[in-house]
Design a binder for these strands. Structure first.
Lengths: 358, 358
DNA sequence: CTGAAAGCGCTTACAG
DNA sequence: CTGAAAGCGCTTACAG
C-alpha cells in the first residue's frame, strides 16, 4: 500500500505524473483477516475448503479494501492469463460493419466471461508475429475470424499449440473448433420470403464465390427455387451475379439485374443490399414496389436506415456467436472437450425493403 | 523446455488438447550461453554494460532458441505491462466507421511501438469496471476516444492514477493529454472549396452541437463565409441544419436543404455526407452538378464509392493521430513529460462529389 | 563488465 | 479446514 499517484499540470502547460498506484495485495487481505495467504487465495477464487465464517470475514475485508488480484502475478503463478485474443483483418474492421460487429460482440462476450480481450489485427505481414502471439504468454487462446484466414501466419496459428476457436468456417479443414451462422437454410428463407411477397423474378448478388459463406448463401437461393419449382420459379442463371461483399460491387450488379427485369434481389450481405438499393433509387426503381430487396448480416438494419426504407435482412446473432465461441475457447483452455463445429440459426428480420402491402 | 502440445480430433468428432506449450526461459538462454541470468536479461533488453562478444553470443543463442520473454513475468517483475488499453464506445465501433478507423489505427500504432492492445468497450454500465481496469495491472495506460466521454466511469478514469491520452477533445477540461484533428480551418477549407467550385448557396449539416468537434466544424463553415464575405457569401441560418453524425439524420436534413435551394452541402462527417447524397439522388438532384457535397473523416471515401461518385472529404490522419497518441502515452508511462494538447491538420481530398468540370 | 540474490504477487501441492 | 513453503520467469539494485 503506497502513496497514491498525483497528476498535475505544470506551469508551462505540460503534464507530469508521479507516484505508483495505490496497491493492495493478497498479503494485505490475509494479514488483516488474520489468515494465511493460502486461505485468502481460496476465498478470493471461490475455491472450496474454507469455513463459512472465515470465508465471509475474508471476503468482507477484501471488498472493503477494494482488493483486486494482480493479473500478472496470477498469470505467472497459474500459467493462465485470463485474456483471450481476437484475430481479425484490419481491413475488415475498417471497411466492413461485419468486422466491427464481430469485434463488438466478442468484446462483450469476453467481459461476460471475465476475460480481457487483446486485439490482433491481421495485416499482410510476415511471420514473426505468430511466435510473438504464442510465446508472449499474454493470452490463453484466440478467437479467429474466418475472414482472417488465408494469411499464412493466421493459418499457422491453427496448427499451433494455442487454443483457437474459429468464427465462421474454414474452406477445407473440418478438425477445427468453430462457430458459424447457418447460411443455407436462412438464405433460402430470405429468398422464399421474396416469393411470398409475390416476386416472380428474383436475382441474387453473391459474395466472392471463393468464400464458403458466399457459396452457401447462393446454395440457399437455389434451394428456395427448387422448393418453389412447382410454382414455376426456377433459377435463371443470368440473374446470379457475383459481387465482392462490398457496396460498390452491388451498385454495378443491381443495374445489370434491373436491366434483366428482376422484381426481387437477394443480396449476399447488407452492404451489397445497400449498394443495390442505392442503384435502384438512382435508376428511379422503387423499393419495394418495383424491386424487393433482402440482405444478410443485419449490419445494415436498425439505426442505419436508407431513405425511409429499412432493410430486410437475415440478422446474424452476433452475441450468441461470440458468446458460444468464447465459451468454447474457455473449455478448451481448461482442458474440457469441445464439440467441433457449432452452427447457429439467424433470424430473418423483415423491414420495409421487402414488404409489399398488397 | 517441455513436451509440445498435441491437438487431435477424437473419434466422436470432438477436439481435445493436451500438454503445455514448449517454453524457453531466460534461464535456458543464460545456461546455454554460459552467462548469468542478469547478463542474459541485459542482452535481451538491449541494455548497456555487456561486452560486445558476449552480447552477440547470447543474442545468437536466444535467437536460435526462439526465446521470447514471458510477458507476465516481465510485467510482474518490472511493474510494466507493455500493453495499453483502448476505450471506445461499443456503439461507436459498431455503427460508425469512425470508431473502426480509430481502433484500427491505434492497433497498428500499438504494434509499431511493440505494445499489446486491450479493448475496453465502453458500455453504459456502472462503476466497478474502472477499478478493474486500474487494479488489474494488465495495462500501463489508456488511449481514450473522446466519443466515450460522458459515461461516468470513463470520466472517472481521467482522474485516476492510470496514464491516459485522449483522442479528440474534452468538452471542458484542458489539463488532459490529448491528440486531436484540427477542425476549424479544415472545415473552412472544405467550405471554401465549394465556393471555388462556383457554389453560391452552401448549406451545412452539422453533428450534434453538444459535441466540441461538431461545433468546431460549424465554426469553420462560418469562418469560410466570413472570409468570402466580399463575394456576397454570407451565412443563411436557415441552411444550417443539425444532424447527429449518423446517416439517417442527414437524409432528412438534405431534403430540407434541397428544398431551400442549396447548391452545395458541407456535411459534418462522411456518414452524413453519404446520407445527403442518397437523399439527393432519390430526389433526382444530381451530384455534383446540382449540389456539390463534401464530408469529413475520410471514412466514406476510397473503396466505398456511392453510385459512381467518390466522396470529397476532409480526411482524418488516423495513423498519425494514433501514433502520436500512443507515443505520448508511452512518454507518460515512462515518466517523461508530455505536451498537453496536440492538434494535427487533416487533408482535404477532393473526389467526384464536389468537382464541377465547368 | 558480470553475477548472486532478493523480490514482484500470486497459486498450488503438501503436510498437518 | 488451514498454513508454511516452493515456485512461476523475469528485473533490478547491489557488490564485486
Amino acid at each position: 500500500m503506497s502513496v497514491p499517484c498525483i497528476r498535475r499540470a505544470t506551469p508551462d502547460g505540460n503534464i507530469e505524473r508521479s507516484g505508483p498506484v495505490d496497491t493492495i495485495t493478497l498479503d494485505d487481505v490475509a494479514r488483516l483477516s488474520g489468515v494465511s495467504r493460502s486461505t485468502a487465495s481460496r476465498v478470493i477464487n471461490d475455491q472450496p475448503g474454507v469455513r463459512p465464517d472465515v470465508r465471509e470475514r475474508v471476503q468482507r475485508i477484501a471488498d472493503h479494501l477494494g482488493f483486486r488480484p494482480n493479473r500478472a502475478a496470477k498469470n505467472l503463478a497459474s500459467g493462465r492469463a485470463s485474456v483471450i485474443g481476437l484475430v481479425i483483418p484490419s481491413e475488415e474492421l475498417r471497411v466492413d460493419p461485419y468486422g466491427a460487429s464481430i469485434t463488438h460482440a466478442v468484446g462483450r462476450a469476453a467481459t461476460r466471461h471475465d476475460l480481457g480481450l487483446m486485439l490482433h489485427l491481421a495485416e499482410e505481414v510476415p511471420g514473426r508475429t505468430v511466435h510473438h502471439i504464442l510465446r508472449d504468454g499474454l493470452i490463453d487462446g484466440l478467437v479467429i475470424s474466418s475472414v482472417a484466414l488465408g494469411r499464412p501466419w493466421v493459418d499457422e496459428l491453427l496448427d499451433s499449440s494455442l487454443p483457437t476457436v474459429l468464427i465462421g468456417r474454414h474452406p477445407r479443414r473440418t478438425d477445427l473448433a468453430s462457430v458459424d451462422v447457418e447460411n443455407v437454410e436462412s438464405s433460402a428463407a430470405a429468398t422464399t420470403h421474396l416469393f411470398d411477397q409475390g416476386c416472380e423474378r428474383v436475382g441474387t448478388i453473391t459474395g466472392p464465390l471463393g468464400r464458403v459463406d458466399a457459396r452457401q448463401r447462393l446454395d440457399g437461393y437455389r434451394l428456395a427455387h427448387e422448393r418453389a419449382g412447382r410454382s414455376g420459379r426456377v433459377v435463371d442463371e443470368s440473374l446470379v451475379v457475383e459481387g465482392d461483399f462490398r457496396r460498390g460491387s452491388a451498385v454495378e450488379a443491381a443495374r445489370v439485374l434491373v436491366g434483366r427485369g428482376v422484381d426481387g434481389i437477394v443480396a449476399g450481405n447488407d452492404e451489397m443490399a445497400i449498394g443495390a438499393m442505392w442503384a435502384c433509387t438512382a435508376l428511379g426503381v422503387s423499393i419495394p414496389g418495383d424491386v424487393a430487396v433482402v440482405g444478410f448480416d443485419g449490419t445494415g438494419s436498425g439505426l442505419d436506415t436508407h431513405g425511409d426504407v429499412t432493410l430486410s435482412s437475415v440478422v446474424q446473432p452476433f452475441d450468441r456467436l461470440a458468446d458460444t465461441a468464447v465459451a468454447m475457447l474457455n473449455d478448451i483452455v481448461e482442458g474440457r472437450q469441445v464439440a467441433g463445429a457449432v452452427s447457429i440459426a439467424p433470424d430473418l428480420v423483415v423491414g420495409g425493403s421487402s414488404v409489399r402491402s398488397a
